[in-house]
Structure formats: structure tokens, C-alpha cells
Design a protein around this nucleic acid. Structure first.
Lengths: 335, 335
DNA sequence: CTGAAAGCGCTTACAG
DNA sequence: CTGAAAGCGCTTACAG
């Protein structure tokens, strides 16, 4: 019942050539005569032969597998990124070993160990940070790493993010321009550069216009935490008329919370997110937000990673991609 | 700069034993004396040795890699499933090669080829169907397959789904019990057993109570298609007072559409979904829906797959897991 | 261009 | 329990 697996030996026998000849026909860049190629291809076709990538990986040290480490899959931004990353890499002949890591150094450590065992050719981490000794280990093993949607100050790793500081500034200008002066920020998490940058741009942008944020709380990228922060802000003596939230995922929770407190979002309180995930455009939220240009971020990530795989000596690069503010009804251009 | 990779040879040399001895210490079930084990472990520790899984895979034919084929990652149900599946399998020492496939036979065919090349020990397909010849090829290659949230009539494959027929019945009883008589259904897709089963249970359930659906349209698991269907239904001469939608993802679009037409959901029109994804519980939708017990479905999937890997002769099994109707404000118990 | 041979890092009979 | 040896399916110098 089980098909015996067919090897290059079988093909060689049928084609009347050596096993090395078969290997050369299937090795890009190796030389073989037209006649040999024809005979081998015919035999391979007939037998249904396909080279064993595991054997190939063992000998070349190139597995054509990319490790993808993701967390926060409940934030719609990451499944969307995973899907596009996976498609783009598949098109380049790579395969994706996915790891869902709790965002703890411990979990990530285990994952990186596994990735190194499988001799992945490169690693993409989405949304998780890496400690510096993990970084060092990957570098030591010669495995290129690209951080997706996270920066790592001073680690010398490549990263692809949106222009977070400028994004924060855009929101500040927009809200002040709309006439708000009581403006609060529910940030991501101070431990993540992404969140810090958005906050910094936002606070600086406000300052440039002579405004100071009336509230600043970490939402930890978590719905419950963000909702609790919103409750505190809106319950205050002088509640904000506008809230900038560190990402869309939390902004949805903030909107739910505001509505539960009887506020009409977009009228009583303006709410702005960051990401522009698909859900932001759905009728129930219609969220004003800064778009992270996912397709371009994915392209840049794949390009950077493959370039580093091709040339390990290549310098790492930090890429920032600018995205527009998308205005919807959760925060209009005027009060 | 690059750490030379350390092999079992290196460990053997340092420990003063043969290379085979090292291998045995790291092979579960192989026999080695306490003394040998101690020496080898110490040497391995010192050198930072970890067995090369690729080499091991080539010789044993077991890669400890599971292929996971997913589509529809914009439907929140699947990222959630992916995350849990990945965690559960990681705990069992397996790794997940993820493929995002367009739901076409062509795309799936390519993916299956790749999976077979990588000698995956098993395949889980979430949300995609497989043609019968693909099924035959996997069987021929001795690779166990489990369908997650999809059935495949007559293919002899294992599958794990919720009790879809019964789920459809529950919705019928609920809506009729609430006093509705003008009831429509926006189904999934007739090409998918899951969708057909939900529809069948629903229609039969209505019939048992002497009610006939006033509208039946396929939503193709697509937001736009589902919204268009809702518009047609609600624009009709005798619009339904209740709509059962084939999954939550489409139900959100139906709610958005109904609201855009000025209807108050839960009062003017009752809407029921299927899945109970996290978003269903969020304030903006608060969707009444049939829960698919994700954790139990994942457990059953992993268990079935590993059992079939351990014993390839094992008969396939179709597992159905019952889930409750969760009542929220989009459709209450009474009109 | 091509074949014989070595070797990638392991596991597993085979003898002791 | 243990070592020497064969072999998993390939790629790649090495000679022709």
C-alpha cells in the first residue's frame, strides 16, 4: 500500500547515468549536458522523483526553512501579517516553521533553541522582543534575524516597523487641529520600543502645539487593561475629549468601554487607534487610525531577510515605513 | 565568530565513549549504563550539544514536523485555532510547518507536495477540503490527516468538528421559541460539509416546529457576499425578523449591514452566528451564537493525529463535539 | 560534462 | 551494556 520512496539512485538506474548526474540535474547551477538532463528528467517524471530536502539541508546547511515567532494572535494585525509573510516566503521557495510564543524570555529562549536545532536559515519575530544574549546566540550561529513591528535599541538587529514617532505626531496634530485640548493617551507598553515611539511622537507633537496630555496610562496591549484605563480616564473630574490608543486592538476595547458608560464615540469622545486592521473599517467601530502599511512592511521584511541570508556579512538595517492617518467616524476632523 | 556546530562525535571524544553511545543516551528507549549516561550528559552540557533533528529525521523517517494548512485567517476562529494547535503540538515535541493556502485544489495540491517532501509526520487541514486524489496520495504515503472544522464525506479521513447539525437545530428551536416566524438563513457554502450540516439541522429544526425558512442564501464565508445577502433579505417585501448566519465572521457583516439600514439589531431583527469567536463577546456586536468548543476540538485533533502517527493501521474517526448556544443581545430569548 | 568516492550527523542491527 | 560498521539520501570536491 505504501509507495516506496524513490531516490536519486532509482532515477539514476532508470536513466542509465550515475547518481551524481541525477543530483546535478536537480541542483541549480550545476552543469549537465542537455542529453543527460533530458534522460534524467524523463526518468524522474516517470518515477515521481523529488529530491529529499532534508538530505539536501543536512549537506548544504541550508534548510530553506524560516522560523516565524509570533505572539498576540488575537490582535488581528498579526494573523494578517502571518498570512502575507507566509505567502511571500512560499513564493521564494521557503517554508515557514511557526512558533507561537508567550511573550516571555523563557518561552522565546526555548523557541530559539528549537529553531537553531532545525537549522532554520533565518528568523522573523513578530511582536516579540529578544534579550541581548539570545540575539548574540543567533548572531554567533550565523542566523539572520529580522524583527517585525518591534525595534530593539542597540541590538544591531534588522527591524521593520512603521514610522511610529511620526505616526504619533500625526495623531497629535490631528486631534489638536480638530479643537481638542483635553487629550489622553493609552499607550502600549513601555517595554516595547514600538509603543514608546508612538507615545514619544504623540507627546512631542502635542508639546509643539502647546498642549500637554491630560492622562497617560499603559494598556499593556491587553483589552482588559486598556478598558480599565479608559474607565479611569472617563470617570475622572475632567475627562478627556479625545483618547489616542496605542493600537487598534486596545482601541476597540476602549470604544466598547466608552459606549458602556453611555458615551457616543466620535461625539462625546474621540478615539484614535494605530494599525488599521481590517476590523477598524467595519461598521461597528469605524475607527480613525494610523495605518501600518502591511504589504510594504512584509515586502521589506522578506527582502531584508533574504538579503542577509545570501550575504551574512551584510549590515543589519532598521527600516521604517510611513503610513497615513485614516479618518473615520470615531474621531472626525472637527469637534 | 561562527560557533562550529558540535556533533555527537565531539561529545563522544570528550566523554571517552563511542559515538553510538552518545546517540543512545539521546535516543529515548535505547539502553545505556548509568555511568555512560552521566559521562555523556556532562560532555554534552559542556559542549552545548543538541542532536541534529534533520539527521535524525532522515534516518528514522520521522521528522516530528506536523503540516498545518490554514485558510481564512481573517476569520478570527482560525488564528485562535492555530495558536492553540501550535501550543498543544509544541508541548508534545512536534513542530508546525504552516501553510497558508488559498482554498483552491491547485494551491492545496502544491502545499501537499511540499509537505510530503518535508516528510511531515502528519497533516492538519483547517477550513480547507481536499480532493479525493490528494487524500489517496497522503494515504499512499502513509501520512495521517486530520480535518479540522471540515468534514469530507466518504473520504475515510479523520475529522474533528462541532456538532453542526445539532447546532443548527438549537438555533431553530431558540428562534421559534422566541416567537419568530419570519426566519432566514445566510449559509456558509454548499461546497463545505460544515455549512451544509448547519443548514440542514436548522431547516429540519424549523420543520419540526412547523416553520419554513423565508430565505436561504449562501454567504460564501465572505463578508461582502453575506452583507449583500442581508441587504436583499432586509429590503424585501416581508423582511425576516430573524437571521441565522453560518458563522460569526459573516454575522458581523450582517449586523453592520442591518445597522447601516437603520435597523436596531436585537430589536428590529435578531441575528445569530456560529463559532463564538472572541469578537462575538465584545460590546460592539454582543452576538448570540453557537459555541464551537475550541479547546476540546484542539485536544481531540492532536490526540487523533498522534494516535494515527503511532499506529498507522488505526481506523480514522469522525469526532463531533457539542457546543452550547450562547445568548447575548443580538438575539434575545423573546421578541 | 561525468563517475567514483567521501561525507553531512545521525540510528540501528550486529557482534561481542 | 557497548563499539565498529553500515546506511539514510543527498552534494561536492576530485579526477578524468
Amino acid at each position: 500500500m505504501l509507495e516506496a520512496k524513490v531516490t536519486s539512485q532509482d532515477v539514476a538506474r532508470l536513466a542509465g547515468v550515475s547518481q551524481s548526474a541525477v543530483s546535478r540535474v536537480f541542483t541549480p547551477g550545476a552543469s549537465a549536458s542537455k542529453a543527460t538532463i533530458a534522460k534524467v528528467r524523463a526518468a524522474a517524471e516517470q518515477l515521481g522523483y523529488r529530491p529529499n530536502p532534508l538530505a539536501r539541508a543536512m549537506i548544504t546547511g541550508k534548510s530553506r526553512i524560516i522560523g516565524l515567532v509570533v505572539a498576540y494572535l488575537d490582535n488581528q494585525f498579526y494573523p494578517a501579517a502571518l498570512e502575507r509573510l507566509s505567502n511571500a516566503l512560499q513564493d521564494k521557495g521557503y517554508h515557514i516553521l511557526v512558533f507561537t510564543a508567550a511573550n516571555s524570555q523563557d518561552g522565546i529562549e526555548r523557541v530559539i533553541n528549537d529553531l537553531m536545532d532545525y537549522q532554520v536559515d533565518g528568523i522573523i519575530t513578530a511582536s516579540v522582543a529578544m534579550s541581548s544574549d539570545l540575539t548574540a546566540r543567533c548572531a554567533g550561529a550565523g542566523i539572520p534575524v529580522v524583527l517585525f513591528n518591534r525595534g530593539q535599541p542597540g541590538a544591531g538587529l534588522s527591524s521593520v516597523t512603521s514610522a511610529n514617532v511620526e505616526g504619533g505626531r500625526k495623531v497629535a496634530r490631528f486631534l489638536v487641529g480638530a479643537g481638542h485640548s483635553q487629550i489622553a493617551h493609552i499607550a502600549g507598553w513601555q517595554g516595547a520600543l514600538t509603543g514608546r515611539d508612538r507615545q514619544r511622537g504623540f507627546v512631542e507633537g502635542l508639546a509643539d502645539l502647546g498642549v500637554e496630555a491630560c492622562g497617560l496610562i499603559d494598556g499593556m496591549y491587553d483589552r482588559d487593561t486598556a478598558a480599565a484605563a479608559a474607565r479611569v480616564l472617563l470617570d475622572g473630574a475632567a475627562p478627556p475629549t479625545a483618547i489616542f490608543v496605542g493600537n487598534d486592538h486596545m482601541a476597540f476595547a476602549v470604544i466598547d468601554q466608552a459606549r458602556a458608560m453611555g458615551r457616543v464615540v466620535g461625539r462625546d469622545v474621540a478615539i484614535v487607534g494605530y494599525d488599521d486592521v481590517p476590523l477598524a473599517a467595519w461598521g461597528a467601530y469605524d475607527l480613525t487610525t494610523v495605518r501600518q502599511p502591511l504589504n510594504r512592511m512584509v515586502e521589506a521584511t522578506v527582502e531584508t531577510l533574504l538579503a542577509q541570508i545570501a550575504d551574512p556579512a551584510r549590515a543589519s538595517q532598521q527600516i521604517e515605513i510611513d503610513g497615513p492617518l485614516v479618518v473615520r467616524t470615531s474621531a472626525r476632523g472637527e469637534i
